[in-house]
Design a binder for these strands. Structure first.
Length: 279
DNA sequence: ATGGGTACCTGTCTGC
DNA sequence: TGCAGACAGGTACCCA
């Protein structure tokens, strides 16, 4: 489910209530992608100092009991393909897909994840241990000033993979998942099959702008795809209406009327307009 | 280093 | 109706 916009919307909706919340109990359901890495009871008494995001990962920075900002490690969370995070009623029994509960004095935070590609991992610091290892290979944040067309140009040079695949890899720029990779390339007028190294400075500039724009608009829209998932209305929803090409195979391009095509790249669907997007 | 493929797991939809 | 198969918002890891 979650690409950067959905993760950021999740973070924004939780951060105020969670900041300062004290952990009262931790419940683990079925195993997620990786083990927690600490005894769940050892987290009891800690407070959530801050909730931040890196790429599609959430970082719950923890304070030791009684101390303020003592840096008592934290929890790194990934929502995988199907994860969602919400406050539940304090004593609501866990459903079959609820695999991680953080009971706090501010409410019960619950991770629901049917496919269990998600993970919650304890780490002594963001840049150490399990978290450090997972975050080490990540590229720049699309909303930070370091993300420019020039950087894209520099990092794509010498890469032979298709641009769509390069964007998804996450080691150049983070947060662009399967939907927004297609959308950004559509906005930039670039054929997703284009060899990365063939993109010149001008198109890299356009692509950087398109990526930032698409992600920012999606955050503003409230991560509509996330809402779809929670309401179990399937794939149709506000984002589908906004999407230029994603999920629109066989429908007319909104710019030129040419039928949108679907292809498979690196075992993932890619959607594009063969007329508006050029190699 | 790069790139390709596989693996993880479960739900939903489509077509026969 | 039943069932097989395709497909789904991610990413670490293994191997050429």
């Amino acid at each position: 489910m979650p690409e950067l916009p959905e993760v950021e919307v999740t973070r924004l909706s939780l951060v105020e209530r969670l900041r300062g919340a004290q952990i009262a109990a931790v419940r683990i359901g079925k195993p997620l992608r990786w083990p927690l890495g600490c005894a769940p009871e050892s987290l009891v008494g800690h407070r959530v100092h801050e909730l931040t995001r890196r790429g599609k990962y959430l970082w719950f920075a923890l304070d030791a009991p009684g101390a303020l900002n003592s840096g008592a490690g934290g929890l790194l969370m990934h929502l995988g393909m199907s994860g969602s995070l919400n406050f539940s009623a304090q004593h609501a029994p866990p459903g079959p897909w609820d695999h991680f509960d953080l009971a706090t004095d501010r409410g019960l935070l619950r991770l629901t994840d049917p496919r269990r590609f998600g993970a919650v991992v304890w780490s002594s610091a963001v840049d150490e241990g399990a978290a450090g290892k997972l975050l080490a290979r990540l590229g720049v944040e699309p909303f930070e000033t370091g993300f420019t067309g020039a950087l894209l140009h520099e990092r794509l040079r010498g890469r032979k993979v298709a641009i769509k695949t390069a964007l998804l890899a996450g080691d150049i720029v983070v947060g662009v998942g399967n939907i927004y990779a297609s959308e950004a390339l559509f906005l930039a007028g670039i054929d997703p099959r284009t060899r990365s190294s063939r993109l010149g400075a001008a198109r890299c500039e356009r692509l950087a702008t398109a990526i930032t724009g698409a992600l920012a608009r999606a955050v503003q829209a409230g991560g509509s795809t996330l809402r779809d998932f929670r309401d179990t209305h399937g794939a149709s929803g506000a984002f589908q209406l906004e999407a230029g090409v994603y999920g629109r195979e066989g429908l007319p391009c909104k710019h030129c009327g040419t039928l949108v095509r679907r292809i498979v790249q690196a075992q993932r669907s890619t959607y594009f307009c063969p007329q508006c997007q050029r190699r």
